[in-house]
Simulated assay, not measured.
Amino acid sequence: MPRLSKDTDPVSSSPFPPPGWPLLALELRAPWEFGAVLPAWPVLQRAPLGDGHSVIVFPGLTAGDATTLPLRRYLDSRNYNTVGWGQGLNLGPRDGVLDAAKRQLQAVADASGNTVSLVGWSLGGIYARELAKEMPDRVRCVITLGTPFAGHHRSTNAWRIYQFASGRDIERETENYNLPEAPPVPTTSIFSRSDGVVAWRGSLQAQSSHNPHTENIEVVASHFGMGLNPSAWWAVADRLAQPQTNKSGAAWKPFQRPALPGLQLVFPDPLR
């Protein structure tokens, strides 16, 4: 799969609008995406097997571990030890939330004796990225699903919900973090141009000479269905199955669209 050229930022410096009403209406297709798991299951079982390392999965805004349970059960079937974030509904980074996430990451890493992969859906991906920046020695890789880290906060249709749920001013919150900066570990952003909540350009990770082990994978999915979408599941399993990357990144390889019949149709070329 072609990758973005080094030091090229795919996101315009000026704010871009959130998805319009037609795309927002298409979010109603999310249950059908989950329904596609059953007929896709034989193909999903052909995704690479993992090495048994631990994976923490973070839910999206106002969601909890129940929403990530199907993905976690699939990853368990591919030989991973998956856990939810264990903090109930994700109502934003309220006091104590990120500290609890750090303690969980440390505990899971200590229990396994190995680094831990972090998977985050939407806002959960922000947590995964920021944790990896603060604790890179404990993180194997980061994978995000529809996470808006590269755009203005008003480039999503959820910023008002965030402010209501968290009780925090989102503009002031984002000033505390360098969200577009990639963690110093292999980082994959899975996005969809038909996302009805997050402007897809806000999920594009620029590759830079500081961290060349970043990539973007496009899938055909809704925002609410991305964590339940078979093609997204395949991409997550494929990325988690990579061997442990050393400090030079020698073991890391970018995602290759699968050669299995039909699968290239569900993984469009993100640079088309």
Rank of each mutant, 00 (worst) to 15 (best):
residue 1 M to L: 14
residue 6 K to M: 15
residue 6 K to S: 13
residue 16 F to A: 08
residue 17 P to H: 14
residue 20 G to P: 02
residue 21 W to P: 04
residue 21 W to I: 15
residue 22 P to D: 10
residue 25 A to G: 13
residue 29 R to G: 13
residue 32 W to R: 15
residue 42 P to N: 08
residue 44 L to H: 09
residue 51 D to G: 09
residue 54 S to D: 09
residue 64 G to Q: 04
residue 71 L to E: 02
residue 75 L to E: 01
residue 79 N to R: 14
residue 79 N to T: 10
residue 85 W to N: 03
residue 86 G to F: 02
residue 89 L to Y: 05
residue 91 L to F: 03
residue 98 L to V: 11
residue 101 A to Q: 03
residue 110 D to P: 00
residue 110 D to F: 08
residue 111 A to M: 07
residue 113 G to Q: 09
residue 115 T to K: 13
residue 116 V to L: 09
residue 117 S to Q: 05
residue 121 W to V: 04
residue 122 S to V: 08
residue 123 L to T: 12
residue 124 G to M: 00
residue 128 A to R: 02
residue 151 G to I: 06
residue 152 H to S: 12
residue 156 T to P: 03
residue 164 F to R: 15
residue 165 A to T: 11
residue 165 A to D: 02
residue 176 N to W: 04
residue 177 Y to E: 06
residue 181 E to R: 15
residue 184 P to K: 11
residue 185 V to K: 06
residue 187 T to R: 02
residue 187 T to F: 06
residue 189 S to W: 04
residue 192 S to R: 05
residue 194 S to R: 12
residue 194 S to F: 07
residue 195 D to Q: 08
residue 200 W to L: 06
residue 212 P to R: 07
residue 213 H to L: 14
residue 213 H to R: 15
residue 217 I to G: 04
residue 220 V to N: 11
residue 224 F to R: 11
residue 226 M to Y: 04
residue 227 G to Y: 00
residue 230 P to F: 10
residue 231 S to K: 01
residue 245 T to N: 13
residue 246 N to A: 11
residue 250 A to L: 09
residue 258 P to Q: 07
residue 260 L to P: 04
